[in-house]
Write a protein that binds this DNA or RNA. Structure first.
Lengths: 135, 135
DNA sequence: TTAAATGCAAATAATTTGCAGCATA
DNA sequence: TATGCTGCAAATTATTTGCATTTAA
């Protein structure tokens, strides 16, 4: 059994070929793909894969804490298989989304009394080095 | 001329009745409304108002720095007329979006070399006091 | 009188839902 | 076999676009 299959099983998620494929892809890319980008990337290798399954699966992973759903791109959700603490940067010019480190425990805002957060996300929007160089 | 009209004029934006209405509404609510919510709120008082104009106007305000577009609600953009530095909290239970303060200069991540951010947003997702009390 | 702003209708894009068949415990 | 998973097609929701009309500098 693959590592990924074991990871899924360990969380009580049946390790179907589609789920393994999608989770492996998410964990192996830094692209922060949209649901449709995941579909387009994997569909050639598994032609029966459907968008429905991609949406179902990404939603499942997010609920189960195996992936992050990013609202950084106003139009579509983008997904990140790296759930460790880090920030996200979106370049206005190329649309790319990049990770950036935040110091350990760096994102822990003091919320008003009574609010409890289970998820914190830090987004920066601006220009990435390549686009800055390109002018 | 109203304060709002003056504010728009000062930015080189023609202060049409629709723009004044929408900006006044945005600045007078803590609801972080979606584009459609803005439309539904204002349409009764100005029946000729169209969704197109609401979308156009909100987009203009965001580009001109008069409002913030929040990607905190995975499905739709929500808008905030308060552009001062603060964080946003979304309650999973009721869907409400709340402001919370961050200490001055509190959101200034160290980005990798070459990245320049013109906008930083901090999102927390969890449970608000009312929903926590409701169980 | 000219450019900008508005708003209707249609188009597009992202996502969700209903449901039937398949796979697997 | 019973339950969960997949995927097609249709539906829904959010947003954008094309274009004719109106408004105001």
């Amino acid at each position: 059994m693959s590592d990924t299959a074991a990871l899924l099983s360990g969380r009580g998620i049946r390790p179907s070929p589609q789920r393994i494929l999608i989770l492996d892809f998410l964990r192996g890319t830094k692209e922060h793909p949209s649901a449709d980008a995941v579909y387009r990337a994997l569909s050639p290798g598994l032609p029966t894969l459907s968008r429905t399954t991609v949406y179902n699966t990404l939603g499942l992973f997010v609920r189960e804490g195996l992936a992050l759903s990013l609202g950084i791109d106003g139009v579509q959700s983008r997904f990140d298989g790296d759930t460790s603490e880090h920030g996200h940067f979106r370049c206005r010019a190329c649309g790319g989304v990049y990770d950036f480190p935040v110091k350990a425990g760096g994102i822990s805002p003091r919320l008003p009394r009574g609010f409890t957060a289970d998820l914190v996300q830090l987004y920066c929007i601006g220009t990435c080095p390549s686009c800055a160089a390109a002018g």
